[in-house]
Design a protein around this nucleic acid. Structure first.
Lengths: 235, 235
DNA sequence: CAAACCAATTTGGTAAACCAGTTTAAGAAG
DNA sequence: CTTCTTAAACTGGTTTACCAAATTGGTTTG
């Protein structure tokens, strides 16, 4: 995982340029699945950039499953036809930097699903971990301290209990960004944290009783303020 | 993302080991947000691994927002307290390789959302691109050829029209894996493709008429078989 | 004529060397 | 003793050089 998911540097533009050149090359030479690309060295001199940049671009395309590299052999186009290849590369090039609004929107979506799945699939061990996270959160709030971390860990514990590793990965991906923005914009304040305890407890009880519908409802209540924030934010 | 999001190599284990050692170091030294980690060189000799491995591990932790590196200065622990730090690192280490079932489950979840958002937010240009993808799919199927690529691009066009770049990125991430598994297990066959044309058209019409509820219903119909497959697959 | 072998070249991966800022600390001046 | 100067050591990032595996083309052998 090497790869950071999205480059935010100024290298971004040059890497995108290289990616588009690779696309053009594949189209021009009519490369099909399994065909070999020129070596990194040749590409670097053909595009007049450093080999490192070429490697970076190839790794990005590898991340999206469009290319694959075999050590001491070469880089090959994946088992995806030219239509999908072009379409996906264009999508990748057009990808915008995710903003806070879409981040929150996605988090709500994911969590309303994980809480349902957790209510259906949770093991006793999952339940125990969720409870521990809940207690840690309550204690911190009762002491009047900031509990953003414990809040987060409660939600991550639910994500883990959902048994869906893909969603779990996505949650882990967006969580840090969420935290930094929350603390930056002070979305959560003190009295909200207090009401949050009961809301967390409601969600926990629903998961404990294996009631997916209720769990989802309680999570919706918990997200109510967040929901408003998400759809009232200026575009 | 440079990170490729998840390493599948055997380097995986050694990198995870380094990550856990970094966690132990942070705990042992009681490092707080803003504190500096030892240099990559020192860590590499302390852990008795190459500097490259250390760099890779740090970049992974950077991807999840737990560390940040300042050029020519050092690597620092992010503004996340020790509780969240430990919790998240443990989650990262425990992350399982996503299997096909969770992949499909996640795809259905994401698409039922994107199609709603697309119906609400689509621009005229979005609609045009979706229509083009639809036509390309129909033609391919009519000619009796395999149309997995065009099918995919139709769904990606909807994701783009949803206006949520975070979900869009996630869709792009899971799509290649979906494709390879589809072609491997032959989830889709010929007659399904034919019925798929009308289903696609229904979805398109709903988006065109800006009817989010209908769009979601039609997409559900389209996913019906996939849905069954997802929940009947052996665990 | 075909198959098997071999050496040489090419490949992606990796470790070492290098670079340009930053930090640190020692030393000189006041 | 304090403060400013300065140079040396250290930092993450980048380029370069090297490596072992694998492909390739030619040659030999059955």
């Amino acid at each position: 995982m090497t790869t950071e998911i999205l480059p935010k540097n100024e290298n971004d533009s040059i890497q995108k340029e290289i990616i588009s050149k690779i696309r053009d090359y594949i189209n021009f030479k009519n490369l099909e699945p399994g065909d070999k690309l020129p070596s990194e060295r040749k590409l670097s001199e053909k595009f007049e950039v450093s080999r490192g940049n070429v490697r970076e671009a190839i790794q990005t395309l590898e991340f999206y499953g469009l290319l694959y590299s075999k050590p001491q052999s070469g880089t090959f186009v994946a088992d995806i036809g030219p239509v999908a290849m072009n379409g996906m590369i264009n999508d990748i090039l057009r990808l915008e930097e995710p903003d806070f609004k879409t981040l929150v929107e996605t988090r709500i979506l994911l969590e309303l699903k994980t809480v349902r799945l957790a209510a259906l699939r949770r093991t006793e061990e999952d339940l125990k971990e969720i409870e521990e996270a809940l207690e840690a959160y309550s204690e911190k709030v009762m002491q009047g301290e900031d509990a953003v971390q414990e809040d987060l860990l409660f939600h991550l514990a639910i994500a883990k209990a959902s048994g869906n590793s893909t969603i779990n990965t996505f949650m882990l991906t967006i969580t840090p960004e969420i935290i930094t923005n929350f603390t930056k914009y002070h979305v959560c304040d003190k009295n909200v944290a207090f009401t949050g305890i009961q809301e967390h407890r409601d969600v926990y009880e629903a998961i404990k009783n294996k009631d997916p519908q209720l769990a989802k409802e309680k999570m919706k209540v918990h997200f109510k303020m967040l929901y408003q924030y998400c759809y009232n934010i200026k575009d």
